[in-house]
Computed example of a mutant assay.
Amino acid sequence: MVINPVYRTINKTFDKVEHAFEGASGQRRIGTLMVLVFVFGITGIQLNRFGLLPPQIAAITPTNHLEAIELVFTLLLVFEVLSLLFSLVYSVSISVGKQVEILSLVLLRDIFKEISNLHEPIIWEEVSGLVLDISALAFGALIIFVILNYYYRQIHQEPLSPDDKETASFIIVKKLIALLMMVGFLIIVGYNWWFSLFYGEENQTFESFYTLLVFSDILIMLFSMRYGSSYRVAFRNSGFAVSTLLIRVALITPPLYSAMLGVGCALLVLGIRVAYNYYMPSSYQKKREENRRKKASNEPMVCFTK
């Protein structure tokens, strides 16, 4: 069939990209890159403090050493986003967990962002006004970390469809969406960093990405309905899309509200997953789903009434 080569191309491309980032050698390269970025960041900041950088480079180089930590945290978040897109293919529940993980890391990064504008060495008179915000961000990230521990324990892998061909087809669709999302994310990173460095605009890389993620979540939910229309699955996927939207809101709110919304999002996805696990379909829903499967395989259907 004509579509088979397309499927094979998508599958092969995704697997190559995933191996490049998620494989053992890829992880070592990422770790090495982050170390180099941190060391060069600290060195560049120190050279700028000494006035040893060319004017063009000095203009875009900070003078506070804490900004090197913010930089390497941001780079870590970029790779975490790529990991999120890989997980999107294998499990919607795990990919949502990764979204909340990234939010917790954003909260930790924002601590360094909050204090990166202070003078060195840090003095109490300057930092005293930030104690509440910093504490909220730190404890919010910690609570999210604890909630995620319970969330991942609730996940049990279930095939979307008993038909292996349908499941394989859905995975290919998700791989294509993931690849398109990677391209979109790289464009967002390039655009935001360019205008942030050279035009002084606020960097909104992750805010823009989560907006894109809301649409991809909805798209995957709609595609999943081609392989089954279970209310249980539809509610779970819709609820997860809402949690993505709330994470997007958390990224643009002040630190205190950001931490509160982050914890609320983590509790929401945990609640959705627990409710999903314990939801018991009615006899009507079970028969309806069974008839759908039997109709696909041309087996005798079940009557709903006696």
Rank of each mutant, 00 (worst) to 15 (best):
F86D: 01
L85H: 07
F79T: 12
H65A: 10
P55F: 15
G44R: 02
V96D: 03
E70I: 03
N64Q: 07
A58V: 07
S87Q: 15
L47M: 11
L76T: 00
V72Y: 05
P54Q: 09
V78M: 08
Q46H: 10
I102K: 02
F40G: 13
I94H: 04
I69L: 07
V81Q: 03
Q99L: 13
L71N: 08
S95V: 11
S91T: 05
H65R: 10
E101H: 14
N64L: 10
V96E: 11
F73M: 06
P62W: 07
P55M: 15
V92E: 10
Q56L: 10
E80T: 07
S95F: 12
L76N: 01
T63Q: 09
F40V: 12
L82K: 00
F73I: 00
N48L: 12
S93F: 06
Q56F: 11
V72L: 02
R49I: 01
L85R: 10
Y90K: 15
E101G: 06
E70S: 03
Q56Y: 05
V72C: 10
L75H: 04
L88W: 12
T43E: 03
V89F: 07
A68G: 07
L47Q: 09
V37Q: 11
H65G: 02
L77E: 06
S95R: 14
E101N: 13
L88N: 10
L77W: 00
P55S: 15
L47D: 06
I57T: 14
V96T: 13
T74L: 00
L47C: 06
L82H: 02
S93P: 00
S83V: 02
Q56S: 12
N48R: 13
I94C: 01
S91I: 07
G97P: 15
T63C: 02
L103G: 07
I60T: 15
P55W: 14
E67G: 13
A68E: 02
I45M: 11
N64M: 04
I42N: 09
E67I: 06
V78W: 08
K98C: 10
A58P: 02
G97Q: 11
L53R: 10
T74H: 03
E80H: 09
F73T: 01
F79V: 13
L85V: 04
N64C: 11
L84M: 08
T63S: 05
S93W: 07
A59L: 13
Q46S: 06
V96R: 04
F40I: 14
L66C: 02
L66K: 08
L84Q: 03
I45V: 14
F50M: 14
S95T: 12
V78D: 00
H65L: 11
K98M: 12
L53S: 08
G41H: 08
L71K: 06
I102G: 00
N64F: 09
V96G: 02
F79P: 04
L66R: 05
A59Q: 08
I69W: 05
T43W: 13
V100E: 08
Y90V: 14
S95D: 11
S87R: 15
S95C: 14
Q46K: 06
G44S: 14
L71D: 01
K98T: 01
V96S: 11
E70W: 06
G51R: 10
